[in-house]
Amino acid sequence: MPSETPQAEVGPTGCPHRSGPHSAKGSLEKGSPEDKEAKEPLWIRPDAPSRCTWQLGRPASESPHHHTAPAKSPKILPDILKKIGDTPMVRINKIGKKFGLKCELLAKCEFFNAGGSVKDRISLRMIEDAERDGTLKPGDTIIEPTSGNTGIGLALAAAVRGYRCIIVMPEKMSSEKVDVLRALGAEIVRTPTNARFDSPESHVGVAWRLKNEIPNSHILDQYRNASNPLAHYDTTADEILQQCDGKLDMLVASVGTGGTITGIARKLKEKCPGCRIIGVDPEGSILAEPEELNQTEQTTYEVEGIGYDFIPTVLDRTVVDKWFKSNDEEAFTFARMLIAQEGLLCGGSAGSTVAVAVKAAQELQEGQRCVVILPDSVRNYMTKFLSDRWMLQKGFLKEEDLTEKKPWWWHLRVQELGLSAPLTVLPTITCGHTIEILREKGFDQAPVVDEAGVILGMVTLGNMLSSLLAGKVQPSDQVGKVIYKQFKQIRLTDTLGRLSHILEMDHFALVV
């Protein structure tokens, strides 16, 4: 994948999101292997301009796509893939009243899908469409860049269908997702969380590099694949309309690839034109409109599966009536509230959605109805927002919020430890010299600072030695090549209790 991002070429006709291997024109390309080798690009942008032909009021008969309808489940399912879809609609009884809503608040519980998330729908649909058009064949390999849930859905379907599955996901995604993927037989590649989507090191860039190296491999490409919004247009939206008897006044959905909100909203605009569509985008993402909503100094966020630093091709923002931004604290607070007060075992993005819903639905009156999409299960986040310690460490809970008995030293300040200034190293000294210094002084790690004293990161003896043994660096290389740029900081005025929580999850903390 090139470091400079080429513009994806656009073909003359058809839909841009065809499933299957992508040609340089962004659509299915038939021909000899030699032709494909000559024409197939190194990668295709996940934010390529959409060429979708959908228009409100256009006859369904003019759609270029294969459409399906929700099917009634048999008493005995032939395999677990038949437990994807037909998820329950559940009334939220307490939270709406707590925040003064007059309307009825309903939750579409997508964590009841077989793999635990709304992404099971698009995973199965992308595979079925690729099999139907002859792209996927027995023994082929599926590769997908994902925040985890699409990966789980694909790995689940691949396990049943017999495909090899490789999932490329950023490091910030939970260990629970990784464990589930491994249990399903998927191979996992992790990428830096802070890598831009168009960087060769991003999950998108690495996935395309693997595709170019592995024979008979395919990126189904949830960011561009029409099967993504079509899955929701054909099934999720129809289920909502049936469950609500066609009567709903507002739908609120958090947005990642945009397939969920695009597919549902398009069908609702056709069948229930008075329904307002509300999009939820986390602070630090750029999906919301108008652009002024996205202006923030924050560039990272903890909530998973929603928000991006690019506009995915499948996201149709014209069908969203209003956007709201959400933050991590309210997302996790509301997710825990949904679990504790409503018994809905949902993930953090569901918290984002409901946090926005109780604001947006203030305009609705008694007798009206708001539906929220709860995308995934708490299963993926047992060591994250479900953990009091994690919430404390991230600053989303305060010590006084917890009532468990603490040891005698818990409320003492870090400054009472009488710490001395640490050994520091410059980023320009060599790895070999740094190892000598650390061994001589008896230290395992040291902060790396520039000549102005600005902290650049941390270097550890173990990481340097393993990097040297693996051949990633040489003793003569500058130590700046092996620094940890993500590390926890703590102030002298913070409590030892807070430091204790940090050290339970990290090997060190830097006192500043």
Rank of each mutant, 00 (worst) to 15 (best):
residue 265 A to W: 06
residue 140 D to V: 08
residue 172 K to W: 01
residue 131 E to F: 04
residue 260 T to F: 01
residue 146 T to G: 06
residue 240 I to Y: 06
residue 60 A to P: 11
residue 227 S to R: 07
residue 33 P to A: 06
residue 131 E to I: 05
residue 18 R to C: 05
residue 16 P to D: 05
residue 14 G to R: 06
residue 264 I to Y: 05
residue 122 I to E: 01
residue 186 A to C: 04
residue 128 E to G: 01
residue 183 A to Q: 14
residue 21 P to L: 10
residue 119 K to R: 06
residue 244 C to S: 01
residue 165 C to P: 01
residue 268 L to S: 01
residue 243 Q to T: 13
residue 77 L to M: 10
residue 25 K to I: 15
residue 217 S to R: 01
residue 244 C to A: 01
residue 130 A to K: 01
residue 113 N to L: 06
residue 49 P to C: 10
residue 190 R to V: 08
residue 61 S to R: 14
residue 34 E to L: 01
residue 265 A to S: 10
residue 105 L to D: 01
residue 37 E to D: 10
residue 256 G to A: 01
residue 3 S to H: 08
residue 61 S to V: 04
residue 237 A to R: 01
residue 190 R to A: 01
residue 273 P to C: 14
residue 145 P to N: 01
residue 219 I to L: 09
residue 78 P to S: 12
residue 251 L to T: 01
residue 255 V to R: 03
residue 88 P to G: 01
residue 59 P to L: 11
residue 247 K to C: 15
residue 212 N to L: 12
residue 23 S to V: 05
residue 100 G to V: 07
residue 88 P to S: 11
residue 223 Y to P: 01
residue 101 L to D: 01
residue 97 K to T: 06
residue 215 P to V: 05
residue 66 H to F: 09
residue 273 P to N: 05
residue 48 A to L: 05
residue 135 T to L: 15
residue 9 E to C: 13
residue 16 P to A: 07
residue 51 R to S: 15
residue 260 T to C: 10
residue 32 S to C: 01
residue 35 D to G: 11
residue 214 I to L: 07
residue 276 R to A: 14
residue 174 S to W: 01
residue 70 P to S: 13
residue 258 G to E: 05
residue 15 C to E: 11
residue 154 L to R: 01
residue 225 N to T: 10
residue 263 G to C: 01
residue 81 L to R: 04
residue 213 E to A: 15
residue 245 D to K: 01
residue 179 D to L: 07
residue 122 I to Q: 01
residue 243 Q to A: 08
residue 271 K to T: 11
residue 83 K to P: 08
residue 266 R to C: 07
residue 22 H to S: 06
residue 234 D to A: 11
residue 106 L to I: 10
residue 196 R to L: 10
residue 24 A to W: 05
residue 38 A to S: 14
residue 71 A to F: 09
residue 115 G to E: 07
residue 21 P to S: 13
residue 44 I to R: 14
residue 141 T to W: 15
residue 21 P to G: 06
residue 270 E to C: 06
residue 217 S to D: 01
residue 46 P to D: 01
residue 78 P to T: 09
residue 76 I to Y: 08
residue 218 H to A: 01
residue 246 G to K: 09
residue 190 R to G: 04
residue 17 H to S: 09
residue 67 H to F: 10
residue 206 V to L: 13
residue 200 P to C: 04
residue 272 C to M: 15
residue 265 A to F: 01
residue 203 H to F: 07
residue 231 A to M: 08
residue 221 D to T: 06
residue 222 Q to P: 08
residue 275 C to I: 13
residue 185 G to C: 01
residue 57 G to R: 12
residue 271 K to F: 14
residue 239 E to S: 07
residue 158 A to V: 15
residue 194 N to K: 14
residue 99 F to S: 06
residue 68 T to P: 11
residue 118 V to T: 11
residue 246 G to Y: 01
residue 256 G to L: 05
residue 13 T to A: 11
residue 9 E to G: 11
residue 225 N to S: 08
residue 261 I to R: 01
residue 172 K to H: 06
residue 87 T to W: 01
residue 88 P to H: 11
residue 223 Y to N: 01
residue 177 K to T: 01
residue 63 S to Y: 05
residue 38 A to V: 13
residue 254 S to T: 08
residue 212 N to Y: 04
residue 276 R to T: 15
residue 37 E to Q: 06
residue 29 E to L: 08
residue 128 E to N: 11
residue 105 L to P: 04
residue 192 P to Y: 01
residue 101 L to V: 01
residue 186 A to W: 01
residue 251 L to S: 01
residue 31 G to L: 01
residue 254 S to M: 05
residue 142 I to S: 01
residue 136 L to N: 11
residue 36 K to C: 12
residue 133 D to V: 15
residue 179 D to M: 03
residue 81 L to V: 07
residue 132 R to L: 07
residue 243 Q to C: 07
residue 205 G to V: 05
residue 182 R to Q: 11
residue 137 K to P: 01
residue 159 A to C: 01
residue 274 G to T: 01
residue 20 G to T: 07
residue 11 G to L: 08
residue 27 S to T: 12
residue 148 G to T: 12
residue 232 H to C: 01
residue 149 N to C: 01
residue 140 D to Y: 08
residue 19 S to P: 11
residue 257 T to S: 07
residue 60 A to G: 01
residue 82 K to R: 09
residue 97 K to C: 01
residue 9 E to S: 06
residue 31 G to F: 12
residue 128 E to Y: 14
residue 139 G to I: 01
residue 8 A to Y: 13
residue 20 G to C: 01
residue 171 E to I: 10
residue 159 A to S: 01
residue 145 P to C: 06
residue 66 H to S: 09
residue 26 G to A: 01
residue 39 K to C: 07
residue 101 L to E: 01
residue 237 A to Y: 06
residue 10 V to Y: 09
residue 32 S to Y: 09
residue 50 S to P: 08
residue 148 G to A: 08
residue 16 P to C: 01
residue 147 S to N: 01
residue 162 G to L: 06
residue 235 T to L: 09
residue 108 K to Y: 10
residue 273 P to I: 06
residue 141 T to E: 01
residue 138 P to V: 07
residue 262 T to F: 04
residue 99 F to I: 11
residue 169 M to Q: 12
residue 270 E to I: 01
residue 267 K to A: 12
residue 96 G to D: 08
residue 45 R to T: 04
residue 253 A to E: 08
residue 27 S to I: 15
residue 160 V to H: 01
residue 266 R to Y: 09
